[in-house]
Design a protein around this nucleic acid. Structure first.
Lengths: 371, 371
DNA sequence: TCTATAGTTGAATCAACAA
DNA sequence: TTTGTTGATTCAACTATAG
């Protein structure tokens, strides 16, 4: 499309503004088939009950905002269907949508997307490198969120910048799981009181990948739950146009200020923080789970003076001691610490084999196809 | 539960067998509230040709002859609702279910779970270390599958072997993303022709983690889509009982053969790390009764900022506060709660000794001579 | 200016038991 | 069923302070 035609098409749209009001009403007021990409971070309907404290007795600041309250799944489903319908009307035939959520809501969202005629292209998992732990030890650390990427309909020619994503990933095809840190530090916006401006601000790195991967420069990106405007900020950096919709004035204010201070990237700045991968940590338990060592099997110390039995949970049990490979090794040697990986061997065909060889085997498998 | 009672409860169940037939029919023929864990890997090919059947064994309306998205989803939803309903009837009140799927079906499954009254505990991502690449470069490498872990209902006391899973992960709390390789090599079962016996055989490592984490030895694990019996094989290894249901005779045959050759791990190897919660409760007053602490003696807080006096009835009295070791600790710290066992120390020979050591002493005496 | 240590925080459906 | 008591439980980053 020429610049002139592009300008014409954009003229009917409130490009690079934040609209106030209900997202469905605002979306219905915009022209159909006009948007290239929609990114949506809808309320998750967390349904939190009481308070939660950390083991040090500090209180967890929960997401208890009014906008996350729904009376039932049915009410949440109606809300979801309404905004997805309005969003789909806006999308160009070859446009696409990304929606992010957690297990509280993502299954409702995914079903609604399918029901409304969207065509799911991938679900992508955001694996958080620094999630909040499960303080009471009652469940798994909630260490990821799920994003759904869908085209307007089956067979649509959606945008996918395969090579750009591949180069973002050190030359390897981008996978459906992305390891990225949560939004903290200077990136996390604060209000006048110094508290977080928004309870669920998303990291720019996430939007960077999405916008680079599924739009081209000049495309229009709409975010119906704009919040503090991460979508707008990243879109502007990357030379895309944005339209935000946000009900809360406080959020609109913060977002406006934020985006104003964003500069469009020059080519040089377009590099992405590619954190160097450390050697992946391999838990000993994985050798057991994967059947490389069998529960009940004996391990033998390097000096052949001690032995210990492997248990199903990846701990060892020796004479009067049990614990990790490191703990048991240290206890048997009367040493303050011990590297269990180099201390223990197992027997195969009458020969002693260091368990560290098994770790190396796992590491080499992981190294072939990193994230 | 005693061994005798366990045997009685199991008598009504076809323990350690593979039932043939439609999973809904078979499940409805089993006694309610009898199963500890259900693992399900349901079919998820929505375009599949007539594989879906209702409880009455009638085929779900043709998906292949007149392709229609909505009727296809509706049919899959009915199928899902039917088997989830039958499964929930079977579960003990504190039982749990795991279901695995991909973006094609997992959103339907997750919504159905919530609609049927299950309570989602986590969604867990299986991050494949060696997935098949996306050859055409049109989407992201599909590098994960999603599992949903749910209890029978909200508030149920599901089994979660927190410490065992933490041990499997080298002492760090297990996260909701699991990095495990797909099933290949010797583990991948072949048919007579040398082709893979089943298209979606799951790795044993996956089931190892699930069964160690959410069952105890002797528990009954049911798999309504048994396939080549990974669930049964791992359950047997880990000293759990299994019930498989499978329509296809070819799969039943492979699974039977496979499970026969599996050896159960020895008893000691099956014992896993347990949490402190499982240890017997010791009233603080017992330390006073036994003369380990004298009435009138002072206890000192961990941070050495507070002290309190022990009274003959096992309560403490500090400045303006009296009550249990926990209540006084909480009051002095201005905290909502406090674990008095780890908060207080006493003095012996000029040194501070945590009172928790005295509790451990009592516990070890109890272990020697169980009442 | 650097290093070491202590403190803070993040979309969270986060207890069990006895009276 | 409700209420009160006991007591178990955290990981990675970033920020602020002290030395």
């Amino acid at each position: 499309m020429t610049d002139q035609k592009l300008a014409q098409a954009h003229a009917a749209l409130p490009i690079n503004t934040i609209q106030s009001g209900d997202c469905v009403e605002v979306m219905n007021s915009l022209p159909e088939n006009s948007i290239d990409l929609i990114f949506a971070d809808p309320p998750y309907n967390l349904q939190l009950k009481g308070e939660l404290h950390r083991p040090d007795n500090s209180r967890v600041d929960a997401v208890d905002d009014h906008w996350d309250q729904f009376s039932s799944f049915a009410a949440y489903d109606r809300f979801t269907q309404d905004w997805l319908k309005a969003a789909r009307r806006l999308l160009k035939p070859n446009g696409a949508i990304w929606v992010i959520g957690s297990y509280h809501n993502i299954f409702r969202v995914g079903s609604a997307l399918q029901n409304e005629g969207y065509w799911i292209l991938n679900d992508v998992v955001w694996r958080k490198s620094n999630p909040m732990p499960n303080f009471r030890g009652k469940r798994f650390t909630n260490a990821h969120e799920t994003m759904i990427w869908a085209s307007k309909s089956e067979g649509a020619k959606y945008t996918f910048n395969y090579e750009a994503l591949k180069s973002l990933n050190e030359g390897i095809q981008m996978r459906s799981d992305w390891v990225l840190p949560i939004c903290t530090g200077h990136e996390r916006l604060k209000d006048e009181a110094g508290d977080k401006a928004h309870p669920t601000q998303k990291p720019e790195s996430l939007l960077h990948r999405i916008i680079v991967g599924s739009t081209n420069p000049g495309d229009v990106v709409l975010d119906p739950f704009f919040g503090t405007g991460t979508t707008g900020a990243v879109a502007k950096m990357l030379g895309r146009e944005y339209i935000g919709i946000e009900r809360e004035e406080a959020y609109r204010k913060v977002a406006t200020q934020r985006i104003k201070s964003v500069r469009k990237f020059d080519r040089e700045a377009l590099r992405v923080s590619t954190s160097k991968r450390a050697e992946p940590r391999v838990p000993f338990g994985q050798l057991v789970e994967r059947g490389m060592l069998r529960p009940g099997e004996n391990l033998y110390s390097m000096n052949n003076r001690h032995k210990a039995k492997v248990r199903a949970d990846g701990t060892l049990i020796g004479d009067d001691v049990k614990g990790s490979i490191h703990q048991v090794g240290a206890a048997l040697e009367g040493a303050p610490s011990c590297n269990g990986w180099t201390y223990w061997s197992y027997k195969r065909d009458g020969k002693m084999v260091p368990i560290d060889l098994l770790r190396q085997q796992i590491r080499s498998e992981m190294a072939e196809k990193p994230s």
